[in-house]
Design a protein around this nucleic acid. Structure first.
Length: 305
DNA sequence: ATCCAGGAACTGT
DNA sequence: ACAGTTCATGGA
């Protein structure tokens, strides 16, 4: 991690290629997002660090991320944890150059990597958030998924107000573990989704399933199997979590509808490609399936701008 | 209205 | 193993 600690602020130097505007565009894709606020090119976000709520503000100057703490001067521990969080959030450990090198040989990816040059995968470092956000999004459109998330966060999450704005923390697994299905039904969760989310909360809160345990497993396949063992977590959700939380570059949610639509567009097809066709296409993406998918998702967003 | 959405479990064969 | 059905509601 390449960062500079200036005591009241910190400065992070993302490795090239890095394009802040592209990342910001992805973060701003939903008007209903409640887990951060984007204002004048800066990102405001609340985060929990060893029990305390910390508001931080990220802005971009001369290819560095400047992080400020608008409410109170942070301790050294807080500064370090926030730096680590941002490093992981923007996926700065990935060597994007290697992905781009591979993409040159590939007509679809070459176009996308040129178009979105410097876009990093925006991750979900918190396992409980990654899992439950994926479950919320199952089989519904993204707009409604964001509606479900907003209600969930605003009903069960902690918040902190500063000026005109209220900043929200994603609800903890411990809090959600205390709920019953009837608590989520009024927010228009299906009975099934409510069960999955509460069960996942119990499993995560008890320590039975943790990010640390998953990352210690010998192979990504072990992580995958541990994930799909959970009720409500199928292949798609497991791959989504592997890709956005566990940083597995070869994770590939091959059945994803968004991926299918993006490929249909990129290839100029009349219909969506079949799974077999996608396997043939993706054979050239070996080791970078997660980034290929993320860039294809990004291409969908162009059409709604 | 009608179709489908960043799926997964359940049921029947 | 595999295919069909159910869940459940909002967006376009």
């Amino acid at each position: 991690m390449n960062w500079l600690d200036n005591e009241s602020t910190i400065e992070i130097t993302p490795p090239a290629p890095f394009n802040y505007e592209e990342c910001l565009l992805f973060l701003g894709r939903s008007e209903q997002e409640v887990l951060y606020e984007i204002k004048d090119g800066a990102i405001w976000k609340l985060h929990r660090v060893s029990g305390n709520l910390v508001l931080f503000k990220i802005s971009h100057h001369s290819n560095k991320l400047k992080v400020e703490f608008p409410i109170s001067p942070p301790s050294q521990v807080v500064r370090h944890e926030i730096a680590e969080f941002i490093w992981e959030w923007f996926d700065l450990d990935t060597n994007l150059k290697e992905f781009y090198k591979m993409a040159v040989e590939n007509s679809i990816l070459n176009k996308l990597t040129n178009e979105y040059d410097g876009l990093r995968m925006m991750c979900l470092p918190d396992l409980f958030e990654a899992l439950t956000w994926a479950v919320m999004g199952q089989q519904i459109n993204l707009t409604f998924a964001y509606t479900l998330k907003k209600r969930f966060v605003e009903q069960f999450g902690e918040s902190l107000s500063h000026g005109e704005q209220t900043y929200w923390l994603y609800p903890s697994a411990e809090r959600i573990a205390t709920l019953a299905v009837e608590d989520l039904r009024p927010l228009q969760y299906t009975g099934r989704k409510a069960e999955y989310i509460i069960d996942l909360a119990k499993t995560v809160a008890s320590g039975e399933l943790t990010k640390e345990k998953l990352l210690k497993m010998p192979t990504p396949l072990d992580m995958y199997q541990a994930l799909i063992h959970m009720r409500g977590v199928g292949a798609w959700t497991a791959d989504y979590v592997l890709m956005k939380c566990l940083h597995h570059r070869a994770a590939f949610p091959i059945a994803d509808v968004g991926l299918h639509n993006a490929l249909k567009n990129q290839l100029g097809l009349e219909r969506k490609p079949t799974i077999m066709e996608i396997k043939e296409i993706a054979a050239h993406w070996e080791g970078w399936q997660a980034y290929a998918t993320f860039y294809l998702w990004r291409s969908l967003y162009d059409r709604t701008l």
